[in-house]
Design a protein around this nucleic acid. Structure first.
Length: 476
RNA sequence: CGGGAUGUAGCGCAGUUUGGUAGCGUACCUCGCUUGGGACGAGGGGGUCGCUGGUUCAAAUCCAGUCAUCCCGACCA
């Protein structure tokens, strides 16, 4: 079995080796595109299932809009077209004939959805409109990386319309909270909630909120975004509703999304040189049972005990796999399931059966311990929670110990230059100061955290009075 | 899209300088023996050497073009 490139020696190769060895994805014949393999797709399905329920619990419904968008639609919102035009794929022919109007393959669906909202929204009684769609989108990127940035990717995009600015703002913040909750409680990935600077926000939005996570190479990854679009799209698509007071008004809108990029985030947040490490709440297989036997008699009794355990665990809702493949030896299976990131491995041999116990190995920490078969379902459930907590805390401690408060621009340059981590510092709010940091250090303002100190100092770049404390970092 | 590197069996690589008809490890198949951290022995199958064209009696090897991937930049979720 080929070895995974150590994370410390080449982070990029480590990341790609994990994807390759864990069979999460493969390169497609088309530049920048990937095939999400069953192991990767199972992860996505689990993410989808959890998020979809969260969306429904907050009142949203699913729909599906076409992937082809008339070129003219994109042009209706000035900033939006400016942001997306360079990275769109355009269909010019269909059925062997040139099309009268080229079709854009959606990079995002604001325009086609708002064209429909125009038909569906007439009265305040039609609001709020709370629609989500699960879809693929295409953005013609120059440089791609599996999961993190591919030409085509899968995501969900929520598009809502509201009667008031306050409602739209509340929705935008609510969905950011949903994403943060999902990232932390399910992906076990700590995130910082904040607002994007004008330079970093979504093209067409008034305000963009985001959650930012730190990867193990200390770079930042935007894991989810939620936009308050104001009345921009309503105006561009001439959508109006008659309010209670009889006045015609433009509704306020939001959009929010997370993508298969989250799979990349999950890999980079937790995994090690042995392979993937998956949080139990999202792991397609939470527990694997590896039976050990030397002859047929032993095998019969061990398998019977293993099946018993499997049934017990299934009974309490644990996703458990019994690997009774006689062609592979236990040692091989140990290594294999570590590579696949299965949170808990149970080793069951004749000695264990005799002693009414099972050996359990956690994926997140070294070592094995014996657990009595009596009450196993409860102890395994507790252990899964413990792994979930353990990897979250490890990621949080890692992040917290790699965020540095810098008080001088030189200090910022050193921290960023030596790739020590993120820099927390004061910023004037002036785009010129922000641009200078990006120009000179390659670091960008990842977000203006919601969490702001009581008092602000002076801008780390210009020395002007600061408006915010922000996070600077190199980003994916 | 610029600079650098790499494309040879599923995976990891050698062979390219100096052209002579392709090899190693691993994985795979068969049999035996094995099973508590990626066992061992014997036998076996698998590659139009990224692709296209050119030079040559002869090309993995030389030349041109092209595609893809990785790293570093510019652009982005």
């Amino acid at each position: 079995m080929a070895k995974i490139t150590p994370r410390a020696s080449d982070y990029s190769r480590w990341y790609l080796d994990i994807i390759n060895h864990a069979k999460l994805a493969d390169y497609a014949p088309v530049k920048g595109c990937m095939v999400i393999r069953p192991n990767g797709y199972a992860l996505w399905e689990n993410m989808q299932r959890v998020l979809d329920q969260m969306f429904k619990d907050t009142g949203h419904v699913n729909a599906y809009f076409p992937m082809f968008i008339p070129e003219s639609f994109l042009k209706k919102e000035a900033e939006h077209v400016e942001g997306f035009a360079p990275e769109t794929a355009v269909v010019t022919h269909g059925g062997g004939k040139q099309l009268e109007e080229p079709l854009i393959v959606r990079p995002t669906s604001e325009t086609i959805i708002w064209d429909m909202y125009k038909k569906w929204i007439q009265s305040y009684r039609d609001l709020p409109m709370l629609i989500n769609q699960w879809a693929n989108v295409v953005r013609w990127e120059m440089r791609t990386r599996l999961f993190l940035r591919t030409t085509e990717f899968l995501w969900q995009e929520g598009h809502t319309a509201h009667a008031t600015a306050e409602e739209a703002e509340a929705e935008t913040r609510q969905m950011l909270d949903v994403y943060a909750h999902f990232a932390e409680e399910y992906m076990a990935m700590p995130v910082i909630k904040g607002r994007k600077s004008e330079a970093e926000k979504f093209a067409g939005a008034d305000v963009t909120y985001c959650i930012e996570a730190m990867m193990q190479d200390r770079k930042a990854l935007q894991a989810g975004t939620s936009h308050n679009l104001g009345q921009n799209f309503a105006k561009a698509f001439e959508v109006r509703f008659q309010d209670r007071d009889g006045e015609l008004k433009h509704p306020y809108s939001t959009s929010w999304g997370v993508s298969t990029r989250l799979i990349g985030a999950l890999i980079m947040a937790h995994s090690d040189d042995q392979g993937l490490i998956l949080p139990p709440r999202l792991a397609p297989t939470q527990v694997v049972i590896v039976p050990i036997a030397r002859d047929e008699d032993e095998r019969a009794s061990v398998l019977a005990a293993a099946e018993n355990i499997q049934q017990q665990l299934k009974g309490v809702g644990v996703r458990v796999k019994l690997d009774d493949d006689p062609k592979q030896k236990p040692g091989w299976k140990f290594a294999e399931y570590e590579l696949l990131g299965v949170p808990l491995r149970l080793e069951l041999g004749p000695r264990d059966v005799a002693g009414e116990q099972v050996m359990v190995a956690r994926r997140d920490i070294k070592g094995k311990t014996a657990l009595p078969l009596d009450g196993l379902a409860e102890s395994i459930s507790a252990l899964l929670e413990s792994v979930q907590q353990g990897i979250f805390e490890r990621a949080r401690d890692f992040r917290d110990s790699h965020i540095f408060e810098a008080s001088s621009y030189d200090e910022l340059k050193t921290i960023i230059g030596e790739e020590k981590g993120w820099v927390k510092a004061f910023w004037s709010g002036d785009p010129e100061d922000e641009a200078r940091v990006k120009e000179e250090t390659k670091a960008t303002i990842r977000c203006i955290p919601f969490d702001q100190p009581e008092t602000l100092g002076s801008c780390i770049v210009s020395g002007k009075p600061a408006r915010y404390q922000v996070l600077f970092a190199k980003a994916y």
